[in-house]
Structure formats: structure tokens, C-alpha cells
């Protein structure tokens, strides 16, 4: 049960209505719509950070699922597990990113990425030299900036969705069950 009312198409404020034109936009929009001026600025921002960009989609979903698992955001882990599968990650890879199975990301680039994600999301100070050096072998500086912002924004969403106890949508639950991820 969500901590706040989730607005639907009949209760959505005027400037939020376009997010409902293609059906239920999900609980994140439903919650943000209660403050429509924040929805107006946050959705384009979130789309820019989480959506298609200079970083490939697989890399981004690895970051999002891993961060969400570390922050224990059930809603975000569930929702982005489905996105990750759609992006081409295997069920085994998603299991591993969720912390539910043995690590299966053999690729050194992706392991360097996981090291960076773990250090950014779990650390308290600057990322250590060795972790940064490993990431720098595979990612340019502008990509490091984008990856770090992606981890940070995911953490923000993790806390938002968890604190407000946003419910995983039935369609996501069905997809996860079919994949043996729930």
C-alpha cells in the first residue's frame, strides 16, 4: 500500500494528463503527479539520465539494477529487471545483479563498471584510485560523469520509491514470474 495517493487518469492534474494518454504511466508518475510542477521537470530529467544516451542501454541497466539491489529498492529492482531483460541481459545476469546468484559478468569492462557502481553507491568519500583506474581503462571521462550521475539518480529514486512503498505493477510481476525472477 503506497504511502501517498497515486493519481490516475481521472485525478491527474491538468499539466500531468499527457503522461496518461497512452494508459497507466505507473506509480512513479502517479505519485509525482500530486505535485505537477515537479513532475513537469523531473520526468524529462529522469528520461535524459535513465533513457537513451551516449551510454549503451545494457550498461545503463546493469548500473540501475545493481544500484537498486544494493539500496534494496524492491520496486526499482523489479521494474528494471524487466527492462534489463528487454535490453538483452540474460536471466542469469539479472539474477547476479540482484545479488541472487553467482557473478556471471565475465567481461572485464562490466566488472570494472560494477566496481565503480559499488564504490559510488556504497562509499562515503571519493572513489578509490584502483577502482577509478580500472574504470578508466574502459570508459571515457564523460562516460564516467554520466555513469556517476546515473548511480546517484538511481539512488534517489530507490529511496523515493521505497520510502513511499510504491507497488510493483501487475504486468511487471507477471513478467518476472514468467522469467523465474519472482
Amino acid at each position: 500500500m503506497s504511502r501517498v495517493q497515486l493519481l490516475d487518469a481521472t485525478t491527474a492534474p491538468l499539466t500531468a494528463r499527457r503522461y496518461y494518454q497512452n494508459g497507466d504511466p505507473g506509480p512513479l508518475v502517479g505519485a509525482l503527479a500530486t505535485v505537477p510542477e515537479l513532475l513537469e521537470v523531473s520526468m524529462p530529467f529522469l528520461a535524459a539520465v535513465l533513457g537513451p544516451s551516449a551510454l549503451d542501454a545494457r550498461t545503463k541497466e546493469i548500473v540501475i539494477v545493481r544500484t537498486s539491489a544494493l539500496l534494496r529498492c524492491g520496486y526499482c529492482v523489479d521494474t528494471h529487471s524487466v527492462v534489463a531483460l528487454d535490453t538483452g541481459l540474460t536471466i542469469g545476469e539479472v539474477h547476479a545483479l540482484r545479488g541472487e546468484g553467482a557473478a556471471v559478468l565475465a567481461d572485464q569492462r562490466e566488472n570494472a563498471l560494477l566496481g565503480w557502481v559499488d564504490a559510488v553507491s556504497g562509499g562515503r568519500g571519493p572513489v578509490g584510485d584502483e577502482v577509478a583506474r580500472r574504470l578508466g581503462r574502459y570508459f571515457a571521462e564523460h562516460e564516467t560523469v554520466e555513469l556517476t550521475l546515473l548511480v546517484g539518480v538511481t539512488m534517489m529514486l530507490n529511496r523515493f520509491c521505497t520510502a513511499l512503498d510504491l507497488p510493483t505493477s501487475p504486468e511487471v510481476v507477471r513478467r518476472l514470474a514468467a522469467a523465474g525472477l519472482r
Binding site: A12, P13, L14, P36, E37
Partner: peptide, 26 residues
């Protein structure tokens, strides 16, 4: 007992230009 939100413009009312410009845009 619940406030209707279907015709809500903004929660921000100060400064007034924030909801005023939202209304004008609509």
C-alpha cells in the same frame, strides 16, 4: 473528504507567477 486534483495547476503558490504562468500556458 479528499481534495480533487484534476484541475490542480501547481502546489507552489508563492511566487504567484508560478501558477499564473502555468495557467496562461494551458
Amino acid at each position: 473528504g479528499r481534495l480533487d486534483t484534476d484541475l490542480l495547476l501547481t502546489r507552489t503558490t508563492d511566487p504567484l507567477r508560478v501558477p499564473a504562468l502555468t495557467l496562461l500556458g494551458l
